[in-house]
Each structure stands twice: as C-alpha cells, then as structure tokens.
Amino acid sequence: MTDATDTGLGGLPPVEPFRPTLRERMSGWAFYIPIVFMVLFFALPMALTVVFSVFERTMFWMEPGFSLLAYENFFFSARLENFLASMGYSLISVAVSFCLGFPIAVFVRKSVPQAAQHRVVLLFILPFMVSEIIRIFALRPVLQRNGLVNETLLNLGLIDEPITALLYTHTGVIIGEVLSFMPFIVFSGFLAMEAVPKYIFEVCDDLGAGPVRRFVDVILPLAAPGIFAGAVFIFVNGLGVALIPNIMGGPGAVNAGLIATQAITALDFPLAMAVSAIMMATLMGLLYVGHKLFDLTKILAPMN
C-alpha cells in the first residue's frame, strides 16, 4: 500500500468490492415474473382442468368427488370418433397449409431481395387485421350452394350441379382452417429458412442437386424444426378452435374445441373439462414424439 502511494497513486482510496445498487439487485427478480405468471394463469388452470374433469356433475355446475363418468361419456360415444376424425382433418389442414405456405416462404427467402423480404412476409399479417369470425363468415357467400365458386363454375360450364361439399362439411372446415392458419406456416417457414444459408442453393447448383434432392436432402432437414413448430401450431388450432367448425362445419364436422364448447352449452362441465384434458394429453404426447424425432431445441440454437 505505501509502495503504491510512493509510486504516484497517493491520495486514492483503497479499492472496495463492487456493490450492486438496489435497482440492480431487483432487476434479477424481474425475470421471475413470467414464471409466476405462467404458473398462476397456465399451469394451475391446466391442472385444475384435470381435477374438475373427475368431479361429479350437478344441475348447473359440479361438486367435488371422483367420477369417471365424463371420460365414459367421451370414450363411449360419437365424441371419440369425432375427436379422432378431427385430428385426421387437422393433419390434412396442416398438409395443405404446408404445401401452399412453405413454397411461399422458400420463394421469399430465395428470390425476393433482402431488403424487401420482411415487408413481403408482413403482407401475410394483413388478413389478421380483420376479425377471425368475420373472415371465416365471409367464406359462406363464397362457398355456399349458390355462392361465388359454384356460380362461376356453373357459368363456365365446368359443372352441371352446384358442389355442396364446400360448406357445412369437413371440406369446409379444412378450407376455413387453411385460410386462417396458412400464414403461420409462411412465418415459421420463413424463419426456418434462416437456418438454410443462401449459399446452399449455389452449392447445390454446383454439385448438381436437382430441386427434389435439394428439398429432401438439404432444405427439409435444416428447416424441419421450424416447419414442425408451424405444423404444431396449425394442428393444435385445427383441433381446438371451435369457431371454424362452428361456422363452416356441419353434422360430424366438429373438432375437440367444439365438442367441449357444446358440452359447456349443455352445462356438462366435467365433460368439457375431460375433453380439454384429453386434448392436452394428446398434444403433449405428440409434442414429445416430435421432439424425439426432430430435436426441437435446434430451433432455439441455430447451427453455424
């Protein structure tokens, strides 16, 4: 110490350990707020859904108890059939959305100038500025028996009778879902293509990988996690959003969300809870399988 003073550092106070201010100490805790939020408003209600699903049904609500009646009501009725069917049709929606949406994402990444790319993708947000219920409802005059599509096809002489399968059927639900959810595959595909560097296309040109091999060997493996995320999103919504089958569907053309909604309308709360719990379990199971197949952590840790 005295040496230091002698060599010209005299007058300076001794070095003290760094003390964080109150604000700095508090800011660490701010990161826990989302966890508290998620537990309070997500994990807890989800757990309660399972608990309520085994409660006894009363006239207008339910009372504590243990009954598997709701599950029996689900598994031994047309509900199970409808639930499974809606999973199948959700998959079709995912596939159609992927076939229409992913090429758009690839095209935007590959062929649109860098500066304009994000603007082009933003165009797909525009439909979301119209309320979903209006967007879906607006499909009715287009798809119905004497709607735009049928009238046009009739006038062109391409069909003799109006196509009635377009509305109040599974087809109608799929059309509604694709219209609503395709932008998500464009977004997630666009982000997934970030993992596919542009030079890859030139390397493929040089090595002679044609479009099919290029897609299967290079683009798909690299973009898989992003595509999977988009697909899960569409699948979950196809299964859960009651609005679309409510407007576009018909007898049998329902999904899990609508089954639960109908149970609530019938004041059968344990059944609604059971449907929700089953849907949750199914989706978590699928997510687990997907994670095992594609390693979803890749989307968080891009390769370089």
Partner: peptide
C-alpha cells in the same frame, strides 16, 4: 466458396 459453405447438418 468464400463463406464456409458446408451443409451444416
């Protein structure tokens, strides 16, 4: 190529 243009996967 200039960049490390390998297939990352």
């Amino acid at each position: 190529f200039q960049a490390y243009a390998l297939f990352p996967h």
